[in-house]
C-alpha cells in the first residue's frame, strides 16, 4: 500500500494514470480498452488564493453521482516540506481528482489530510490519500465518523450509486482537543477545534503566513447554512471566529475565498433570524411540524438550496431552543 501511494506521489503522469487504471480495473473486474480511456481522471479545477494556497470551489448543489459529490470547497496549503490537504470531497473519485490537481502544482508529499468535520462531502474522499499522510481532525471526529459513517454510506447510496463502493471511513489518527500547530516547512498552520456549532466536530485551519482562514462549514456563503450541531453554539462560535485576525476566509461552501470578517454577516443574519423565529414560535405554543415551515421563511431570497435545508434547520433549532 505504501509503495503504491509512493508511486502516486512520484507523479509521473503516465505512471499515476496507470495506477488509477489498474485500481479501476481491479475494482470493476473489467479490462476493455474503452473503459481505460473513460477512466482517465480530469483534475479538479483549483483557484490560487495566495502563494502556496489553492482552493477547489465546490458546486452549490446536493451530492449526486453527476457531480461526484464535489460540492464542498477543498483546499491545499504548500510548505517547504510538504502539503496539507483540507477536506477531501464527497467521493474517492473526487479525492483522486484533487490529488491529481495537487500534482500539477507541486510534487511535494502530502503530509497531512485535515478534515474540517465529519460530513460526507468533506470526508468521503479520504481513501484517495491514505498512508503515509497523517489524518487530522477534531477530537470528536473519530466518534462522529464511526457512529455516522455507516448511516451516511447507506443514506447517500440512492444519490451517489456505485461511486460509494470505494469510500472508506478513514478517521483521524491525530486529533485536536483545542489547538494544534502543524509545520509544513516555514509554514505554520494553527488548527482550532470548536464547540458544537455547525456540527460536533468543527475545526478551522489558519495559515499564519498569509492570514488565510479555512473555516470549513463554520462559514457558508450563497449555500444556506446547514445546522447539524447547535444553533446557540454556532452563534457563539461566530463571535469568536470574528476575532481571528484573518485576511480572507475559505468558506466550506460558496466562493473559493471571501473578505474577512464580513463573510460572517449573511450567515449570522440567517442564524439569528432562525433563532428568534423559533423562540417566538415556541413561546406561542406552535407545534414543531408547523413551526419548522415558518421559521426563517423571510430569509428565503438570500440563499441557494433554501428549500432543501431550511425546514431541517428549523427542526433542529426548535428542538434545541425549546429546552431554554
Amino acid at each position: 500500500m505504501m509503495q503504491q501511494m509512493r508511486a502516486c506521489h512520484a507523479s509521473a503522469p503516465l505512471r499515476s494514470a496507470a495506477v488509477v487504471i489498474l485500481c479501476v480495473g481491479l475494482l470493476l473486474g473489467r479490462t476493455a480498452t474503452l473503459t481505460y480511456s473513460q477512466e482517465v481522471l480530469k483534475s479538479l479545477s483549483l483557484d490560487k488564493v495566495e502563494s502556496g494556497i489553492y482552493v477547489h470551489a465546490g458546486e452549490i448543489a446536493l451530492m449526486s453521482a453527476a457531480n461526484e459529490g464535489a460540492i464542498a470547497n477543498l483546499g491545499l496549503i504548500i510548505g517547504d516540506k510538504g502539503v496539507a490537504v483540507i477536506d477531501t470531497g464527497g467521493s474517492v473519485r473526487e479525492g483522486r481528482r484533487l490529488l491529481q490537481a495537487i500534482r500539477q502544482v507541486t510534487n511535494r508529499p502530502v503530509l497531512y489530510v485535515i478534515n474540517t468535520h465529519g460530513h460526507p462531502d468533506h470526508v468521503f474522499g479520504n481513501a484517495a490519500f491514505l498512508l503515509p499522510a497523517v489524518f487530522v481532525g477534531n477530537r470528536n471526529l473519530p466518534r462522529d465518523m464511526m457512529e455516522r459513517g455507516p448511516y451516511y454510506l447507506n443514506s447517500f447510496r440512492p444519490a451517489m450509486g456505485t461511486l460509494l463502493d470505494e469510500v472508506k471511513i478513514v478517521p483521524p489518527n491525530v486529533t485536536v482537543d483545542s489547538q494544534l500547530q502543524l509545520d509544513l516547512g516555514h509554514r505554520l498552520l494553527t488548527l482550532r477545534a470548536w464547540r458544537v456549532s455547525h456540527s460536533d466536530s468543527d475545526l478551522t485551519v489558519f495559515d499564519e503566513r498569509t492570514g488565510i482562514l479555512f473555516a470549513g462549514d463554520l462559514v457558508f456563503l450563497r449555500h444556506i447554512p446547514v445546522l447539524d450541531g447547535s444553533i446557540r453554539g454556532w452563534l457563539t462560535t461566530i463571535d469568536e471566529l470574528a476575532k481571528i485576525p484573518a485576511k480572507s476566509v475559505v468558506p466550506g461552501h460558496g466562493p473559493p475565498f471571501a473578505p474577512w470578517p464580513a463573510a460572517l454577516d449573511p450567515e449570522r443574519n440567517y442564524l439569528e433570524r432562525l433563532q428568534s423565529d423559533c423562540r417566538d414560535l415556541i413561546k406561542r405554543g406552535v407545534p414543531i411540524a408547523a413551526a419548522s415551515r415558518l421559521a426563517a421563511a423571510s430569509e428565503k431570497s438570500h440563499w441557494e438550496l433554501f428549500g432543501e435545508y431550511n425546514t431541517r434547520n428549523a427542526t433542529a433549532a426548535f428542538s434545541e431552543l425549546e429546552w431554554e
Partner: peptide, 26 residues
C-alpha cells in the same frame, strides 16, 4: 428519509449526559 447530514442519533453526547433526566411539562 432525506439523504442528508443529520444522522438519526444523538449529536451532543456530553451535554446530554450532564442534563440526563430533566423533565419539562407545559
Amino acid at each position: 428519509a432525506s439523504g442528508g447530514c443529520s444522522a438519526p442519533m444523538a449529536n451532543n453526547a456530553e451535554e446530554a449526559a450532564t442534563k440526563l433526566g430533566q423533565i419539562r411539562f407545559r
